[in-house]
Design a protein around this nucleic acid. Structure first.
Lengths: 346, 346
DNA sequence: TGTTAGCACTCATTTGTGTGGAGTGCTAAC
DNA sequence: GTTAGCACTCCACACAAATGAGTGCTAACA
């Protein structure tokens, strides 16, 4: 038995109806609402086949059918392979984003807008720090024996570190040290700062090696301490309004999952290193494909954004499997465009 | 009729029991579990009086009693006026806080620890930027026609701003401008940067007035754009586990309220400007005292932290009215101590 | 051979009803 | 002033019956 055209049409009808109503779909509903020209009885026979093929399932004996993960997968693959509108520049989106040039603020605004647009949960990772190029390092006097190191990378991302040192330094002196640091490090990837390099530069710095060493070590630490990327999320509460989470137990469990930044980071960056990016850069994981019990009713849509041509961060949406994939993908692409426009406009 | 000693004891018993169980308390329960030496019938008579006085109420005719907001108020005032342990330095708390010197990271860590400690929702405002003293301003070259301004204030708070300017500047030139800015602004409160002052300094800067003006304007903007303080929260999900929010509707509504940063900011800073700080710096608002429908089942405990002797931020806990006020206050005080220690150790 | 009407069957959901129990208020006795 | 006793209230829970959406199967039909 195979998936002929009529079966596919029925499957589409079931999924489409289920996306709208969140209720199991019966044969009569399809016969009435979708103009397929066949009776409920015939549809029932086909549905029985579709179930045998694994595309739909029954919550219980006397209920209608709901799509299985395999069914969603087919549906989503069809969407992904279809040509659809390329992302537009949405001027009203731009208006919602603050003018601030800081990338952290920008990304926070982006997820917030994305969550509002889609009524889903939006997540984004900050650019992978270790893969960014160092643009400028500046040391700033704070107070006796305390110095602020500002490290600027690609996309004008600035990271601040407070350093404690053993001697007093005035700003002119710090400017000189900053100059040395810039000479040595400008244009390097952050991850190229490793222990041998640190030693080499310290030797070069002569009797100013303490502070130079501290700067580099603190950056080295940061990269290796999970601070490589931060995660921003927005709109987790949107999940609470969905019928799939109308049970308090489920609601709590999904909220807890979404609250675990480390887990979300892992989820988001999972396929990132391996670059297992599919169709048109958009990656979709449906239900059990996320390999997590608490995410089994959710789908995750992700895509990467690029800075200086390199994919440095991931942005995504988490929603019920029953979400509007089409428009979610569209919103995601529009926002990506906005991010990249702002981070590469130089 | 007035509140004699016996009535007070019964009231305490009711509240104490209700804090534990979240169930209305009946006369028999009190008679059995609290050694007051009186029968349920007598307690019933007293309870009837307490209800008339407004300290307790009945959810429905044949139920036990629960404390009213007025009852909680009495109870909380007793706690506040009692002498209790002064906050300790908790070494295990210190271990949980990251070593990073950045105040934003510190405050985020603080709310996270506080939420875990108390199982409540912790909130904190970053130091009121406008009231901070400027310590150092440094301009950093980003790329052609883009400059990063780093402004460091009290407590080593660093704020970054990306500026777009109309000419190219190299770092040595920016160092000179930074020097000028520092000369003019060091030691001023941020809010002292106003339009007349900006004009004055621009005049002083001669042909470099563009960039100097931009720096000051962007700071001026920030202070007047709600960026004066940020709000960090943690542990909102803790609310979902409480019996008072076992109804999904209530749960959703409290989560939505806690998600509204602007509302939380207002809640937190409400009494801040007026400095209506009570007993020992700890301020408690119970249920309806918060003047918000969604907060009517919650209490808010707040207190201020000081930098350089000035109260610049507020930290607080939101929990059910039924929370353990004693230990919440204690945890709050301990964490305040930790904040102030780190921000004033110079 | 594919399609369809008819029918018996299943099972979640809703509605109604009775019962148990916790707790009160009142009264009368101590 | 305190307490035992008792009638009364009302929620919570369990259980049964009714409802209805939907299925699978069978037999008839084109």
């Amino acid at each position: 038995m195979e998936l002929n055209e009529r079966k596919l049409k029925i499957l589409e009808a079931i999924i489409s109806n289920y996306l709208d109503t969140a209720e199991p779909v019966g044969s009569r509903t399809i016969s009435k609402n979708y103009d397929l020209g066949i009776s409920p009885a015939t549809i029932r026979n086909e549905m029985s086949d579709l179930e045998e093929l694994g595309f739909i399932m029954q919550p219980h004996t006397s209920a209608g059918r709901i799509p299985s993960d395999k069914g969603y997968r087919l549906y989503v693959d069809m969407i992904l392979s279809a040509k659809y509108d390329s992302p537009k520049h949405l001027s009203y989106v731009e208006a919602l984003l603050s003018k601030a040039g800081r990338i952290e603020t920008l990304l926070q605004d982006i997820v917030s807008v994305l969550a509002k647009e889609t009524n889903l949960t939006a997540i984004v990772s900050t650019p992978q720090y270790s893969k960014c190029k160092i643009k400028n390092i500046q040391l700033i006097e704070l107070e006796s024996q305390k110095v602020l190191a500002v490290i600027v990378t690609d996309g004008n991302m600035a990271n601040n570190y407070v350093l404690e040192i053993n001697e007093d330094m005035d700003q002119p002196m710090l400017n000189k040290l900053s100059f040395i640091l810039n000479n040595q490090l400008h244009g390097l990837d952050v991850e190229e700062i490793n222990l041998p390099l640190i030693e080499k530069i310290k030797a070069f710095a002569g009797n100013q090696d303490e502070i130079i060493g501290k700067v580099l070590e603190v950056v080295f630490q940061a990269v290796h301490n999970n601070e490589d990327t931060q995660i921003y999320t927005s709109g987790a509460i949107n999940m609470l309004r969905l019928p799939e989470f109308s049970d308090l137990e489920k609601a709590t469990s999904i909220m807890e999952t979404l609250d675990k930044k480390d887990y979300i980071r892992q989820l988001l960056l999972n396929d990132f290193d391996g670059e297992s990016i599919v169709t048109d850069g958009v990656n979709i994981k449906i239900g059990s494909e996320n390999n997590n019990e608490n995410m089994k009713d959710c789908s995750l849509i992700t895509t990467t954004y690029h800075i200086g041509g390199k994919p440095l961060g991931v942005i995504g949406l988490i929603g019920p499997k029953r979400m509007d994939y089409q428009s979610a993908i569209f919103s995601l692409k529009c926002l990506i465009k906005e991010i990249e426009k702002r981070m590469n406009d130089s």
